[in-house]
Simulated assay, not measured.
Amino acid sequence: MNAVRTVLALGSNLGESRSTLADAVAALADHPGMKLVAVSPVARTAPVGGPAGQPDYLNLVAEFETTLDAHALLDHCHDIENRHHRTREVRWGPRTLDVDIITYGSSRINDEVLTVPHPRAAERAFVLQPWAWMDPDARLEGVPVADLAARAADLSGVELFEGE
């Protein structure tokens, strides 16, 4: 299989989020079917949706070349989440790690377990802004990611994270 470019979004707001994100990127890349291409700076973001009172998130976006098919990539992402004790109890609730497939080449997938491009990516500054920092020329379904970020309702809640 030829390598496909994929963009993954990672977020965490429980535990040692900064090290969790770094560990997750390394673990994603530590697979024979994955090659890390680029990683965005880390953003601190206000929670979007979910229960009130949860802590801010740390988010980043990473681009990979992969020879995994989209569903095998999803399985790999879930495996990395599980290694970081991810639980799915509350929709959009706090989590140790979330890994979402944003794009998988130019593929459009919509089945019972996977939708690509991610159905809400074009509205989420916590995905779009780090992606635009990583790749100012990036496009999502033909639209500049930076333009989508500028229009996203949650943009005011996104800042460059300069902590440890």
Results as ranks from 00 to 15, higher is better:
Gly15Asp: 11
Cys77Phe: 00
Asp75Thr: 13
Ser40Pro: 07
Arg95Ala: 10
Glu65Tyr: 01
Thr66Ser: 14
Asp79His: 14
Glu164Thr: 13
Ile109Glu: 11
Val61Gln: 12
Lys35Met: 05
Thr87Asn: 02
Ala24Phe: 09
Lys35Trp: 03
Val158Tyr: 00
Leu148His: 08
Arg5Met: 05
Gly15Asn: 11
Ile102Leu: 13
Phe161Thr: 01
Gly163Lys: 03
Arg139Pro: 00
Thr103Val: 15
Arg124Glu: 05
Gln129Tyr: 12
Pro55Ile: 12
Leu60Arg: 09
Ala26His: 06
Cys77Met: 03
Asp154Pro: 06
Asp79Lys: 06
Ala152Arg: 02
Asn82Tyr: 03
Ser40Thr: 07
Thr6Gln: 00
Val99Trp: 02
His78Asn: 15
Val127Cys: 03
Asp79Gly: 10
Arg108Val: 15
Ala62Ile: 04
Val7Pro: 00
Ala27His: 03
Leu8Glu: 02
Glu159Ala: 15
Leu155Lys: 11
Val25Glu: 02
Leu73Cys: 12
Asn82Pro: 00
Asp98Trp: 08
Gly142Ile: 08
Thr115Gln: 14
Asp147Leu: 12
Gly105Glu: 13
Asp69Phe: 04
Val37Asp: 10
Arg91Glu: 07
Arg95Ser: 09
Ala22Glu: 12
Glu112Trp: 02
Ala138Met: 05
Ala9Lys: 03
His84Asn: 11
Ser106Gln: 14
